[in-house]
């Protein structure tokens, strides 16, 4: 019954590898093979039985949705990115303030880079709001 195995392997090709996937693949192969045996006992030729089992199987889309939804990596990192942007921009602003008052205390210019840098945490903040 190589053909059932081939068929299932092929179908699962597009799903990323995981332990879950392997377990489910084995389970499906085994159950389909049992179904083929049953169909053959009812008088079907092996080829017909395999074909029927494969047609009855349906579309892999449902399984794909369940398995892929479980993968890590889609987890929400927006909070981390926001925190990083706040700390990063605060350090850059602190540096420009220091440079401003240490080297050119008569000209206040640190406001300009401050405004430029603030876009970073601002955009991260809205991304975080959206994904929350």
């Amino acid at each position: 019954m190589k053909s059932i195995r081939d068929y299932v392997n092929e179908m699962f090709n597009e799903i990323p590898d995981s332990e879950q996937k392997d377990i489910m693949k084995q389970e499906i192969i085994q159950n389909l093979e049992e179904k083929v045996c049953d169909l053959m006992e009812q008088g079907k030729a092996e080829e017909d039985a395999i074909n029927k089992a494969i047609i009855d199987f349906g579309s892999i889309e449902d399984i794909k949705k369940e398995l892929i939804g479980k993968q890590p990596g889609v987890k929400n990192n927006a909070g981390l990115h926001l925190g990083y942007s706040i700390w990063g921009s605060a350090l850059i602003i602190a540096l420009s303030v220091f440079m401003n008052f240490y080297y050119t205390p008569r000209v206040i210019w640190f406001v300009y880079p401050t405004f430029a840098v603030l876009w970073w945490p601002l955009s991260m903040y809205f991304r975080w709001l959206k994904l929350k």
Partner: peptide, 16 residues
Amino acid sequence: QIKEATLYAVFQRLEK
């Protein structure tokens, strides 16, 4: 008749 593909998707969901 339930499609096998659906069945295993349901197992996965219920187990989760």
